[in-house]
Design a protein around this nucleic acid. Structure first.
Length: 117
DNA sequence: ATGCAGGCCCGTC
DNA sequence: GGACGGGCCTGCA
């Protein structure tokens, strides 16, 4: 299953996002770094926006570096994201989550096995 | 804490 | 080519 040939950037991004475990969150920049695309946080946002729901990516586990959700507080998307996070036991208050509490801290050694970048 | 200006890099027009 | 904007980030006021 662990294909070592995830070439295109968008596939790398999607793959990396898919590795974020339930109940944890990661930032756009973090995903970009892990995907071997340092400095391209915005690109990660672009990818998620353009990823069809059929991909079943845990897009809701991706937030800004300060823990805030990337959507306007009252938007449908923000509401959906909050609901999904809540369902995983992640508390969302004032449109933000606690990085220290829920931030994903991957084992880089193990990741090297998943993401050879 | 909150806001904003740059800077970043890619995709689209 | 050039211009513009984006589910961003960092630094500084």
């Amino acid at each position: 299953m662990t294909s070592l040939v995830k070439r295109t950037a968008i596939e790398r991004v999607r793959h990396t996002v898919s590795l974020v475990p339930r109940g944890k969150i990661a930032s756009y920049g973090q995903v970009a770094d892990l995907a071997g695309l340092p400095g391209r946080a915005r690109y990660v946002g672009y990818c998620l926006r353009n990823t069809p729901a059929s991909e079943r990516l845990p897009w809701h586990r991706i937030v800004r570096s300060d823990g805030k959700l990337a959507f306007p507080p009252q938007s449908d998307s923000a509401h959906t994201q909050q609901t999904l996070l809540h369902a995983e036991g992640i508390r969302v208050q004032n449109n933000r989550v606690s990085i220290s509490e829920f931030g994903w801290q991957p084992d880089l050694g193990a990741l090297l096995h998943e993401i050879p970048y």
